[in-house]
Simulated scan of single mutants.
Amino acid sequence: MLPGVEDGKRRGVSDAEAEAEAGASAAALNDLCATAGDAGGPVPAPFPRAASLAVAALLAVGIGLGVLVLAVVRSAVLLVLALVLSAAVSAFLLWNAAAAASGRVLRRFVDGLPASSLRVAADGQLVKITGMVSCGDISLISSYEKVENCVYTSTLLRKCGRWGSEVANPKNNCSRWKLTHAERFAADFYITDAKSGKRALVKAGYHTKVVPLIDENVLVTTSRSTDLSSTLKCWLEERNLSSEEAQLIRLEEGYITEGMRLSVIGILSKKNGDFMILPPREPISTVCFTETFIAWRKHLWLYLTRLN
């Protein structure tokens, strides 16, 4: 059985039909494991590299001129101004880099976009559709909790970072959790627009690049004295992962199930009265404000964010 996909035999089909269906499912599934390098998926740089290099060059020139004036005129005013300006710009860049890494900027941008209506939105328009989710031709099952009728699943295994041969923190609350295994899958699904009542097919399946803003829930956190449950041991053994009792392990899982409210951002396609939401063909340049600071980010894909 494919990871996360319903078993064809359970629905009463033959072995051959189940194998064919599994092959079709593999072709339609979207394996997002490569984007699970961190908890929030891919994080673009908050500023273009060329802009950062240009600013660094200008600050270096300013500091150099300040040093020259100090050596010739014996006045440190220009040097002090250059150093103060450099500190302010560095703080600005670091603040935005931290905001980008945490995902706060992207989430604020998504929350700030007004919801669109499928009834009035034009073909090819960037839209944000909010509504109830329903499964398409393929539904998923979450890896650990075995939650059925999902359109997106994410299961992350983290282990406590080590310093040499010692655990960084012998207690439960490890200060650094390193991602060692990830399972993320998405499939095409339908969303019913809360404003118009119309339904659209969201192309989140095979070969679609998706940025999922879905928080995983912590299911298991072990300590050095914890005996691993039989369910966790079996899950680890099926994936040929180490199940040493002394390890600090954290297992996280998130999913979108049928009936949840979801917000999707993408390009609307209208053909023969049918609605589809596709990834944007061109990068989206966004200006996101965090307090009084601005972060520039570019995104190319669909955005998924669960609503409370």
Rank of each mutant, 00 (worst) to 15 (best):
R239W: 05
I284N: 08
I284Q: 12
I249P: 08
A246H: 11
L241W: 05
I265Y: 07
V264G: 11
E253N: 08
P279V: 07
R250E: 14
F289H: 05
F289D: 04
P279E: 13
L251H: 00
Y255Q: 10
I249S: 13
G266P: 04
S230H: 06
I267P: 00
R261N: 13
I284S: 11
I267T: 14
G266M: 12
F275V: 01
N240P: 00
E245V: 15
G254Y: 15
L278G: 02
P280C: 05
L241T: 09
G266F: 12
C288A: 14
R261F: 00
L232Y: 09
D227Q: 11
Q247E: 15
L278S: 03
S230L: 03
D274R: 11
S230K: 09
T226C: 04
Y255M: 09
I256R: 14
E238P: 02
S263I: 06
R224D: 04
S229D: 13
D227Y: 06
E258P: 01
L241F: 02
E238R: 14
S285E: 09
G254D: 13
E282L: 06
Y255H: 13
P283D: 07
L251F: 01
P279F: 09
I267K: 15
S229R: 01
V287E: 14
I284Y: 08
E252G: 03
S223M: 06
E244R: 13
G254F: 12
W235Y: 12
S285V: 09
I277T: 09
I265K: 12
L236E: 04
G254H: 11
S285L: 07
E258T: 10
S243K: 10
S243Q: 11
L268P: 02
S269R: 13
G259F: 14
C288W: 03
S243F: 01
K233M: 07
M260N: 13
M260V: 07
S225I: 02
I265Q: 11
S269Y: 00
S230Q: 06
S229I: 03
E245S: 14
L268T: 03
I249E: 12
I284F: 01
E282W: 03
W235N: 09
D227F: 02
I277D: 12
F275M: 01
L228E: 01
G254W: 09
L278Q: 05
G259T: 13
R281Y: 03
I249L: 14
N272W: 03
C288N: 15
L236A: 12
R281P: 00
F289S: 12
T286D: 03
R281N: 07
I277M: 05
R239M: 13
L232M: 06
V264N: 05
D274F: 04
S285Q: 04
R261K: 11
P279N: 03
